[in-house]
């Protein structure tokens, strides 16, 4: 199942995989519930939902609380979840130093971590920053998370 820009998805069937393709400055929040063999993934595009904007999961401050709230409803204990973060690369053109989203990758990472902290949670593994695109996959049966960057072999996270 592909988790598109600004989406949250859940999976609990053997053989199912949650995937964020071609992440640049976006951050994927991958969560695995070992006990119930279920997984969830958020594809965060922007750090915060400012006043006047519709609160959708494209924002870190909407996606992260919603992700864990929904997992709780599905029987997960938030303190026993395996959380992994991928993405947040620096992709802004070098010629755009004054643009407001210049540090968007970094700001997405900070926003996701701040939301996890608010919930008393933290990631057990991360592949963040840099300046390359990434594709991340979560196998909901095994909990295995793999990351691929352009032109490289996949690695386990």
């Amino acid at each position: 199942m592909v988790v598109g820009l600004g989406e949250l998805k859940y999976a609990d069937q053997p053989g199912q995989e949650l995937t964020c393709l071609g992440l640049g400055s976006c951050v994927a929040v991958s969560v695995w519930d070992r006990k119930n063999k279920q997984g969830a993934m958020a594809h965060v595009v922007l750090p915060e939902c400012t006043a006047g904007r519709e609160p959708t999961p494209k924002f870190a401050d909407v996606a992260v609380p919603e992700l864990f709230e929904n997992l709780k409803k599905k029987g997960a204990n938030p303190t026993q979840l395996e959380i992994k973060l991928v993405g947040g690369a620096h992709m802004a053109p070098a010629a755009a130093p004054s643009m407001p989203l210049m540090r968007i990758g970094e700001r997405n990472i900070e926003a996701v971590k701040a939301q996890l902290k608010k919930l008393g949670l933290r990631a057990i593994a991360e592949d963040l920053g840099g300046n390359n695109g990434r594709t991340v996959r979560l196998d909901v049966e095994s909990g295995r998370v793999t990351v691929v960057t352009a032109g490289t072999e996949k690695t386990n996270l």
Binding site: L23, G24, C26, A89, M91, A94, I104, G133, T135, A150
Partner: peptide
Amino acid sequence: PTPPSVRMDMTGAILDYAIASLMM
């Protein structure tokens, strides 16, 4: 226009910055 930026990468990653600013 600003000076151009050229990169070879995954399409989503190349366009992420532009997409993020548009999605605002």
